[in-house]
């Protein structure tokens, strides 16, 4: 764990030493800010409702595109430049490396969401505010981000090319987010059931409504664990 933390800190620092972190922060806050407060027909003032529903909807979409951008270089760049060899011959296990990288991306998302607490506190003063729904909304975002990060990490572990890693992560994300739900809706029987269970959107929606079901939590954590495990497996192959 200690070693994972060392790696996570280094990765996090490299996000902030490059432009990635700042672009992510600015773009995220700009988009969610505009749609939450000013524009789009769904903003707080237009609807005259003190809730964060619009914010969560947009945060969800923006993270869907941004998380692959954070994760794409995590492992692929190490493979391309050969630093993976140096890293893995240090006193670390494959798992510690993968977990460290995961932690770095997850902390990056946490930091981003931390800034949006400003929205939380300001909206909560505007009217009759449902604190519970907002807290589960954040929890849902964090769980979903963890799953996306694990998917992105896996995509990054199978290629040396960052662009390929990005597109692959996006593709797997689209499967979980749209395709499985669509297939689940159009099929009947156990196959339809299976796709509905796999659909990330279904699980996210129920958390976003303010209902925390252990089933949904377990779903997100399983995808996260599976992604991390598969990344570790790919790293251990040394290909």
């Amino acid at each position: 764990m200690n070693q994972s933390w060392v790696i996570a800190k280094k990765e996090l620092a490299s996000f902030f030493n490059s432009l990635i972190a700042y672009i992510l922060l600015i773009a995220f806050l700009l988009f969610t800010g505009i749609f939450t407060w000013i524009y789009g027909g769904g903003d707080v003032f237009f609807r005259k409702q003190a809730d964060m529903q619009v914010f969560f909807n947009f945060a969800n979409i923006i993270l869907f595109f941004f998380i692959p951008a954070i994760t794409m270089r995590l492992l692929s760049e190490e493979k391309r430049s050969g630093t993976m060899e140096l890293l893995l011959t240090k006193n670390v296990t494959d798992r510690q490396v993968v977990v460290g990288k995961f932690l770095a991306a997850f902390l990056m998302v946490c930091i981003t969401l931390l800034f949006t607490l400003v929205y939380y506190f300001s909206i909560s003063r505007l009217g009759n505010f449902d604190h519970g729904a907002s807290i589960t909304g954040y929890l849902g975002l964090l769980l979903m981000s963890a799953a996306y990060i694990a998917i992105g990490l896996f995509a990054s572990s199978i290629t040396k090319n960052q662009i390929v890693a990005f597109l692959l992560a996006l593709f797997i994300g689209i499967c979980f987010r749209f395709l499985f739900g669509f297939l689940g809706g159009s099929m009947t029987g156990w196959l339809g059931e299976l796709f509905n269970t796999l659909s990330l959107q279904n699980h996210y929606d129920s958390i976003a409504r303010g209902v925390i079901d252990t089933k949904d939590v377990i779903y997100f954590l399983s995808i996260t664990a599976l992604g991390i495990y598969l990344s570790e497996y790919m790293v251990s192959k040394r290909s």
């Binding site: 070693q3 280094k10 050969g82 890293l87 240090k90 006193n91």
Partner: peptide
Amino acid sequence: IGYLPEHNPLYDEMPVIDYLAFCAALQN
């Protein structure tokens, strides 16, 4: 074990002392 691989891969974007401190931390 201390290892210097062929082609000497390093993290280009890191300053030298930060990199050495990072390696030291990884090596306990």
